[in-house]
Design a protein around this nucleic acid. Structure first.
Length: 448
DNA sequence: GATTCCCGCCAATTC
DNA sequence: GAATTGGCGGGAATC
């Protein structure tokens, strides 16, 4: 059932499930928030009351109920008292982590938090395949825009309410969307570069270009950084740099960071990440939590720098400009980073630690992604696509295993993608190495 | 002064 | 042609 569109809060109608206006979060601006928001504009205006994160919490509070299947954008905007534009920001992010699926113009299917693990798992697997070059982006399916192909199924939507199969359908559609979107990371590592597929029609190119910059895709790529690189924390500057590639204008960078702020606020209100501070500088960063859930009560995450240690000699990426030799650095062009205030280099040194080799962290990831339990087989951290098939044949003779390893190596060599982004190129090398050792471990285990 | 991020313009896309 | 979608960056609130 579609969440009722009646004017929200105050004892509106006695019918549908009593919507508790943003219990929580809007002090003072509750009720018909639209008017309130305007009224507040000059007066006791607090941007915290209008933050995307808060809005997202309210959005979730509003729709995360058993009896909600579809979400109308207008309805959401009205009930939350914000402009439609803001709702787009929210749903784009929610959709890319599997909480929503777009069904038609103005209409989304609410999947809820149970959609998140699947979405993350898909994202991770997808990302690993992309990194390996084993999947050719060009083979990738249509485009996000095609979700609306379903639109003539609107009627079916009605039937689908409460129907488990269609629920699954939406989820799988969501996954397809995620996949096609995320493919574009490798397709155009520099997300500001329009695709240059020669045969692509012009309008398609424009469309691709637009999609490459979409908030949804950016969200997925941001999440992929955590999922595939085992980053524990990352600052938004660093993320932007990794996602943009090294050739970027300062203005692109600023824009990207602005978007990342938007995304981070939403993800943080979903508890997927939390804001924290890098230990030695006060620079804010985000830590991956990976357990999406509704945030209760206050949405302010204490930026507690947990007992995280930044272990020297662990691989750090990207940001270290002056001390790059000592680490396996991503983003080798960092020497050119030209922060307008010239402070960047020192402030970001040693940040964004890769928790490489930390098996407990890896296991965490796997269990969070639901990979550890289901088959009884615990994937290694860099589970290559197609490896599952090999696992099934796991009772192979040692020689065959050795051959397989060589195959992987040669495959990796021959398929090494030509990333424009040096950072990703380096990252790829990291994966290849990790695969080798992972595969060795797996084959060793299976024969012992 | 630097960082964060809301806001709304306006172009692209879809209907 | 209208409506929807969403990229983008100005600039104000906050740190």
């Amino acid at each position: 059932m579609e969440a009722d569109a009646t004017e929200a809060p105050p004892a509106a109608a006695a019918q549908p499930p009593p919507y508790q206006p943003p219990r929580l979060l809007l002090e003072g601006a509750g009720g018909s928030a639209g008017a309130a928001a305007k009224a507040c504009r000059h007066h006791a205006y607090s941007r915290k009351q209008k933050s995307l994160g808060l809005l997202c919490s309210n959005f979730v509070a509003l729709y995360d109920r058993d009896d909600v299947d579809t979400v109308g954008l207008d309805d959401a905007a009205r009930r939350l008292g914000v402009e439609r534009r803001r709702i787009y920001d929210i749903v784009n992010v929610l959709e890319s982590v599997g909480i929503l699926v777009r069904r038609a113009k103005n209409r989304y299917t609410w999947i809820g938090f149970e959609g998140v693990p699947t979405a993350l798992k898909e994202l991770k697997e997808r990302a690993l395949r992309e990194m390996s070059g084993l999947v050719s982006p060009s083979l990738e399916e249509p485009s996000a825009a095609n979700v609306s192909d379903d639109e003539d199924d609107d009627d079916r939507l009605g039937d689908a309410d409460g129907d488990a199969d269609s629920e699954k359908l939406s989820q799988s559609q969501s996954m397809e969307l995620s996949q096609s979107q995320s493919m574009e990371l490798s397709q155009s590592q520099s997300m500001d570069t329009p695709s240059d597929k020669p045969d692509t029609p012009r309008c398609q190119l424009r469309s691709d270009h637009r999609k490459e910059k979409s908030l949804g895709l950016l969200t997925q790529n941001f999440v992929k950084l955590f999922l595939t690189m085992e980053l524990e924390t990352i600052s938004l500057d660093e993320a932007a740099r990794l996602l943009l590639g090294e050739r970027h204008a300062e203005s692109n960078m600023r824009t990207k960071v602005r978007r990342l702020y938007d995304i981070a606020n939403v993800l943080s209100s979903l508890n997927l990440i939390e804001k924290t501070q890098q230990v030695d500088s006060r620079k804010p960063a985000f830590r991956w939590l990976g357990q999406a859930k509704r945030k209760d009560g206050n949405n302010v995450t204490a930026a507690l720098p947990l007992a995280r240690k930044i272990v020297p000699n662990k691989r750090a990426f990207g940001t270290d400009i002056t001390n790059i030799n000592n680490k396996r650095a991503f983003g080798t062009d960092l020497t050119n980073i030209n922060n307008k205030r010239g402070k960047f280099a020192s402030e970001t040194e040693n940040k964004g630690t890769l928790m490489q080799g930390d098996s407990s962290t890896l296991k965490n990831f796997e269990s969070q992604l639901g990979q550890g339990k289901s088959s009884g087989f615990v994937y290694g951290p860099f589970h290559p696509a197609g490896a599952r098939r090999q696992e099934i044949d796991d009772r192979t003779p040692r020689e065959k295993e050795r051959k397989n390893i060589q195959d992987w190596e040669s495959l990796a060599t021959s398929f090494r993608p030509q990333y424009q982004n040096q950072a990703l190129n380096d990252l790829f090398g990291h994966y290849v190495e990790a695969w080798k050792s992972w595969y060795l471990d797996v084959t060793r285990e299976s024969t012992s």
